[in-house]
């Protein structure tokens, strides 16, 4: 369970929080820090996953989520739509065509959001290193939080990846979606380089504003 360590200094790991958390200074900041820690603990214990079967790793998903390995015991549940998801699992190599859809799906997810990649193909191209249609380094295009290696990783390794992600959320480490917002130009330039500028919308907010909506 979450508890408060008195000597623990927290970096403000939270998006949009202007409050600097300094334990020693005021009681209000203290409460805020406790709340943040509590919320982070709940976030780590409840991860909704949209499993995007981009390659052969899709076959590792069913045993991870069903009777044999039962990821639900750690609060990891599959959902059907990216709107509800916290984590997207990209299981395998990504062709340009897939990458376009993955970017779209990722930007439809609501913050905080995380990415897990399975296998060696998203890391260095794997056996598709000389393909004219497959990307080699996924983390150039979207921020990968956890990369599980293996060809393919067994469900145990996938679960290990979940545990690592939970630890990172709990510790309030800087997550991929924050990096994406900060280095948006870097990511968008890379995407345009391989996808030839055919990425729409330019960014998620443009998409909402077109339809007269907004982000709550």
């Amino acid at each position: 369970m979450f508890g408060l360590d008195k000597g623990d200094k927290m970096e403000s790991g939270f998006y949009g929080s202007s409050l600097k958390c300094k334990f020693e200074e005021s009681g209000l900041a203290n409460t805020h820090a406790i709340m943040e820690k509590a919320v982070r603990w709940f976030e780590s214990r409840s991860i909704f996953v949209v499993a995007y079967g981009t390659g052969c790793g899709a076959i590792e998903m069913p045993p991870t989520f069903t009777s044999r390995y039962d990821a639900e015991r750690m609060g990891v549940v599959g959902v059907a739509t990216p709107r509800q998801a916290d984590l997207i699992i990209l299981s395998g190599y990504l062709a340009y065509k897939t990458l376009r859809r993955v970017i779209r799906t990722y930007e439809q997810m609501q913050k905080p959001r995380y990415i897990m990649s399975l296998g060696s193909c998203p890391i260095n191209g794997g056996m598709y290193w000389d393909s004219y249609n497959t990307i080699k380094k996924l983390d150039d295009y979207i921020p990968v939080d956890v990369a599980v290696t293996g060809c393919m990783p067994r469900p145990e390794a996938v679960i290990d990846g979940f545990v690592l992600l939970q630890e990172r959320i709990r510790n309030g480490e800087k997550a991929g979606w924050e990096k994406y917002d900060e280095n948006l130009k870097f990511y968008k330039d890379n995407q345009k380089r391989v996808l030839g500028g055919h990425v729409d919308p330019a960014y998620e907010t443009d998409w909402y504003n077109l339809n007269g909506g907004g982000i709550a």
């Binding site: 998006y15 709940f42 976030e43 214990r45 916290d86 913050k111 905080p112 909506g213 982000i215 709550a216």
Partner: peptide
């Protein structure tokens, strides 16, 4: 609790 504390929720009016 996690869903209530999400930073973003898309809305359409």
């Amino acid at each position: 609790i996690k869903l209530f504390s999400k930073k973003q929720s898309v809305s359409y009016g």
